[in-house]
Nucleic acid binder design. Structure first.
Lengths: 201, 201
DNA sequence: CGTTGGCTTGAGAGGGCTCAAGGCCAGTGG
DNA sequence: CCACTGGCCTTGAGCCCTCTCAAGCCAACG
């Protein structure tokens, strides 16, 4: 919780620059629409059933984006640490009740933009529309790859892939949450972990 | 293979209208960039490793969009019948080799747009950027729901959900392809089907 | 009419689950 | 500051869902 707003915005700017190049004018317009907010560990940014009216970009900390079924079993869609986006796209886009929970796993800081401000940005600067179009298309490709992994990879392979791909996340979240992300039980994660140890980490 | 180009375009127009309202001028610009093409059963529109330079909208027929792992095991990402889009978003967006195959399961007709024409549309009409932004965001939400189903639903539940949700597709494709879509074996689909019969359809 | 591919069925195996118990640590209230 | 509580992690036993392998049947096709 030590950085200034301007350093926070730099992180956001460099995230955008992965997708499009923004003019200074466009960046001014965009950046002024974001507000910084601190979120305490365990606090919910969004709960199932609520209408999502904000999108957030994580500056510091870590979140989980999850849902639950009728029996209360949790599935984690993704973890969002620094440089990730927090959004419930469906609820935000269509103003329908959210299917998802968004909860802080650590004390965190997030740059938020409201739905109305974002709509305004779309009309003010066509680059924004382009930016979010490309971000969404990139996300679709990523979700497709996730589906393929879940379709034909074993739990062990998914677990290894997770550790290899997100070592930085794996260190910070509980095994139980990793299990919910992978679609397996906490107990089985524990056994997979033990097996990895034996095989020389 | 009996409709005229203009009826084909009407189907495309009404697909777009699910996402945004287009002015007549924008629609003129867009529609003129699409070309109709017939595809024979079993023909590949795209193969793994190729660069994807076209996006297609299915007017008639049915396709599967799939990938294979090292051992040659196939995973089907989705089926695309009438009123669906055919795209390898990652390869199209970034001009990288495709991870996916796109193959016709029936004799089909598709409206194609080339990458360069689409890029041109983005600059010509801002509504197009908006249209594809919303389409992509809607797709992200749909892929997320798919992931949740694969994370904590049993094969039986996924199979029933598929039959209930896409009865029109289920009738037209092989059990083997349904299995690849659901991430289970062909043999097990056969057993699930038998079980459903016994339980009174 | 032989071949190929899809569908079915069965036997056996295994990956991953459920349930239950115990240890450990962090947070909380007295 | 300590006892208590609840949540997380581990481990084991037993089980079930789903897979693999193998065989046989049938329709489509060259």
């Amino acid at each position: 919780m030590k950085n200034t707003l301007s350093t926070d915005l730099n992180l956001l700017k460099s995230n955008f620059s992965k997708y499009v190049e923004l003019t200074d004018a466009a960046w001014e317009t965009i950046s002024s629409a974001f507000l910084s907010r601190d979120i305490a560990r365990r606090e919910f940014v969004l709960k199932k059933g609520e209408i999502c009216r904000m999108e957030g970009f994580v500056i510091e900390g870590c979140f989980k984006v999850s849902t639950t079924d009728q029996e209360g079993k949790e599935s984690i869609l993704y973890f969002a640490a620094e440089d990730w986006w927090l959004m419930e796209i469906d609820s935000f886009l269509n103003a329908t009740p959210s299917e998802l929970y968004i909860q802080a796993l650590e004390d965190s800081r997030v740059l938020f933009i409201s739905k109305s401000d974002k709509e305004e940005l779309y009309t003010k600067a066509p680059e924004i529309e382009r930016l979010f179009r490309i971000m969404a298309q990139t996300a679709v490709a990523a979700w497709q790859r996730r589906v393929v992994r879940n379709l034909n990879w074993s739990a062990e392979k998914r677990y290894s892939h997770f550790l290899d791909t997100y070592p930085n996340i794996a260190k910070r979240v509980t095994n139980k949450d990793i299990a919910s992300y992978l679609g397996i039980t906490q107990e089985f994660v524990s056994k997979l972990r033990k097996k990895r140890m034996k095989e020389g980490k």
